[in-house]
Amino acid sequence: MNKKEISESIAAVSNYLYEKGLVPGKSGNISCKFSENGVKKVAITPSGVSLKSVTPEEIVIVDMDGNKIDEVMNQNNKRDKKPSSEVFMHLKVYKNRNDVKSVVHTHSPIATGFAFAGVEIKRLEGFGPIENTVIPLVDYAAPGTMDLAENVAKGMEKEDIVSLKNHGIVACGENLDEAALLTEFVEESAKIQFVTSLISAN
């Protein structure tokens, strides 16, 4: 896909995840890695914009060091959007994993509740091959910091999804749909585990 198509896909998936309740308010961020004229670039959702209504024109393009490139002017002759504050987390995953083309970070309520409680979510059938029976918990670091980027990248060296303590969920994939569906599925898995625990307690 070209830059325009990637931006359109990110906007569409952003809107979808918001409708599903996985990125409430202005939480969450999505990115895709692509090459243009032999140069690696990343398209990522902007900072401070709800994924409910983000548009293709608001998607920010950065290089592999997080610098904004390919500025597109709006009707006011301005492009003031900044990349997500978690941009370095996305970039670190891409640098560690050549096979990854998309990263999706959500704050889905049930899965995030497990993350705040420090409880691992079981990896149920439907995720694909199960090599780890649970979704790994990544140690807490403040949002937007290099410490968080390092923790997530390390946690995802051999995983396609991780749970961030006191924070949320991060998934990656060979394409945007794959990563987004993983975040949706982990929320459903968390619901099943939560309901099962309530039923078993009675």
Rank of each mutant, 00 (worst) to 15 (best):
S163R: 00
E125L: 09
I169T: 02
I135S: 05
R123A: 11
G113D: 08
E125G: 02
G144D: 15
V119R: 02
E150G: 02
A117L: 06
A179V: 07
A149C: 13
G118Q: 06
E178Q: 14
N166V: 02
N175C: 05
A142L: 15
T133P: 00
L176R: 06
L182Q: 12
A153Q: 06
A117S: 06
A153T: 05
F116M: 04
K191T: 00
G113P: 04
L148Y: 14
G155T: 01
L176A: 08
F116T: 08
N166M: 11
A179K: 07
L124P: 01
I121P: 03
L198G: 00
V195K: 07
E157A: 07
A149F: 04
F114T: 04
D147G: 12
E178L: 12
N175D: 12
A115S: 09
Y140I: 13
A149R: 04
K191W: 01
K165D: 09
L181S: 06
I161H: 13
V195H: 04
F194E: 02
A171H: 10
S163T: 02
A179N: 06
V134G: 04
L137N: 09
A115N: 00
I135N: 05
D160K: 13
F194P: 00
V195L: 12
E184W: 10
V134P: 03
F116S: 02
P129A: 13
K165V: 12
V170T: 11
M156R: 05
E157K: 12
L164G: 00
E188F: 10
E187D: 00
F116E: 00
T196V: 06
A171M: 07
V170F: 06
